[in-house]
Design a protein around this nucleic acid. Structure first.
Lengths: 332, 332
DNA sequence: AACGCTTAGGAAATCGATTGCCTAAACGCT
DNA sequence: AGCGTTTAGGCAATCGATTTCCTAAGCGTT
């Protein structure tokens, strides 16, 4: 545990004033190249690292951003975080991660903390059931919502275009020759579930088709997928494909259908949603799925935040397209 | 975007000096209760939040810690992070999350950044095949390794006692009457795989038993689990239980065994490792598993870090016991 | 030689909060 | 009434780096 090195020590070693040392290290001012070099070597020798607090006190910038996950840090937050880090890391910014755990009190507490730390901006994220209330109004720093969206249209939100994902899934199933397509998804009150289902239905309708059976709403679990398989089988409906609201549902369905003697994809083709590695690869056969490109969303959100920090804020909701990743569960 | 409120504005509004305002807000000095209240109300009214940079410049403490994940932020990092946040949040500290992505250059870069931000301490985490080299020597702040351990025994590491987990798994299988137990796990060169396997073998040996077949090493995947099932069946060995090195392996095994007509747990009991919710619950039947209590490890690591920050550092490797979570796959 | 101009680098203010020291007022005591 | 003691709160230094302004030295020119 050494003692921290300050710029005055560097200046002293190089035989200059602290002001000159600062200029030398930051490439400012008019200095002889030789002096500059001398200071840099002194800094190197002492292992000098500038105190960020002192610097930000002077400059007003901290080069930090806060990331508040409103519900718990989960599977979805990781790629978002990685994407954001990518975009920010290049600009040398650090991220404060705050897990509000779906508690408004915690959320406001974290917001306060971030403001006291004078972050340059804030990214708000979380799994969405629907648009959320803005985290604050008249905040002294820009805020960008990622994955989740703000109810205030003046706020900047970056979200996946889930309807686009659904359309891709349905078009893909149609392209591989399926026509009797069923939809199995999560809770009806969940924004993602209803948006995805509706877009799928609309895409079918555009082809003059309807779901093979009325859309089945349930939960986001494998258990529900298995249960839904039973329901589908029991109706006797002649289904040749199922578009699922999540990979977990798809996987449960795959398991139960296989057990009941249906062969995937020959008898029934399957498409999931999320493209969650362990699920799509663990599924038998491997699962075709829709990828929301969460990393891209994280990256875009961070870029929007940087733009806002630099004075050119974007507004409104930015929907990013999804991507279909074909695998054996829909192979022709 | 309001302008930030400083303590001088609060002081002015309350009609006192900045020094007095500071004392009033921090409960220091000798002030009339009435004055204190007046300042507090002024602060409230203006929405004053102290500038953390200015404060830390003066006090030397930043109330922030850095968390560096050496390999990518993954499934294991989340509970660790949550645990750490728990322990630190209570003490009002914030966490800088840095993802080094298994790149030593990035790692050193992040270390530098954290030091410039004068974090009070650093938690290093990551999944590793074995103990890692210390992240730095003679650092000006305390460091605690979580989940992963440092090769330097003088460093403080908090890790799961994986051997303990294995013993619990084997004892549980013995307790439910199994004797012909097979072991299927990850790559032999992977520290966790070998430690878990060896502890399991030793526990069996202590009962005068040996694994039903030589330990099968492979990868940490469901695919390997399925493949291993095939191997077990083909040897014709009369196995009545399998202890797997991960939940994914166990799940693959469960699927393949069921398909081959074996009933779980009647014919073969299964124990996994990690207690990963989606795996243990998705498995049919639900999987008995070993929980390493990652949240507890994160919490303990943070507590150790706080202790070190407060001047009483711990040294050496602290192994924390695991927990067996019984489910249907080993039900009697 | 005297003047003006450029260049290199120093001195000091500044950012915002904390804190040690000091002083004026109020109080109690003889 | 006078003196010592307590109390309340102000003043100013401080943390470390940046930045503006300023000055001294060095140069060329006539």
């Amino acid at each position: 545990m050494d003692r921290a090195v300050t710029i005055s020590q560097v200046a002293a070693l190089a035989g200059v004033s602290t002001g000159t040392a600062s200029k030398a290290l930051n490439g400012r001012g008019a200095l002889r190249p030789e002096t500059r070099l001398r200071v840099q070597q002194a800094a190197e020798q002492l292992g000098f690292v500038a105190n960020a607090a002192a610097r930000s006190l002077q400059t007003g910038r901290t080069y930090t951003v806060g990331m508040i996950t409103t519900d718990s840090i989960g599977r979805f937050s990781i790629p978002l975080l990685i994407g954001a880090e990518d975009a920010l890391g290049a600009g040398q910014m650090s991220i404060f991660l705050c897990d509000a755990r779906d508690d408004p009190i915690r959320e406001q507490y974290y917001l306060r903390t971030l403001l006291s730390r004078k972050v340059d901006g804030i990214i708000v994220t979380g799994r969405r059931t629907q648009a959320r209330a803005p985290i604050g109004v008249g905040l002294p720093v820009p805020v960008v919502y990622a994955f989740i969206s703000s109810a205030d249209p003046a706020d900047c939100s970056v979200v996946p275009d889930e309807a686009d994902g659904s359309r891709r899934a349905i078009r893909h199933l149609l392209a591989v020759g399926r026509r009797r397509i069923a939809l199995v998804t999560g809770p009806e009150h969940h924004h993602s579930a209803s948006v995805r289902a509706r877009a799928a239905e609309d895409t079918l309708a555009a082809e003059g088709l309807r779901p093979a059976v009325p859309t089945l709403y349930g939960e986001w679990s494998e258990a529900w997928g298995r249960q839904a398989a039973g329901i589908l089988l029991s109706t006797g409906a002649d289904v040749d494909a199922v578009f699922c609201g999540s990979d977990q549902i798809a996987r449960g369905l795959a398991e139960a259908l296989t057990k009941a003697g249906r062969e995937i994809p020959r008898d029934v083709a399957l498409v999931g949603f999320d493209n969650w590695d362990v699920m799509v690869e663990g599924c038998q056969p491997p699962l075709t799925s829709i990828d929301m490109d969460l990393e891209g969303i994280g990256r875009t959100a961070a870029e929007q935040l940087l733009a806002a920090i630099n004075g050119t804020p974007a507004h409104g909701q930015h929907a990013r397209p999804c991507r279909l990743v074909p695998r054996a569960s829909t192979a022709v």
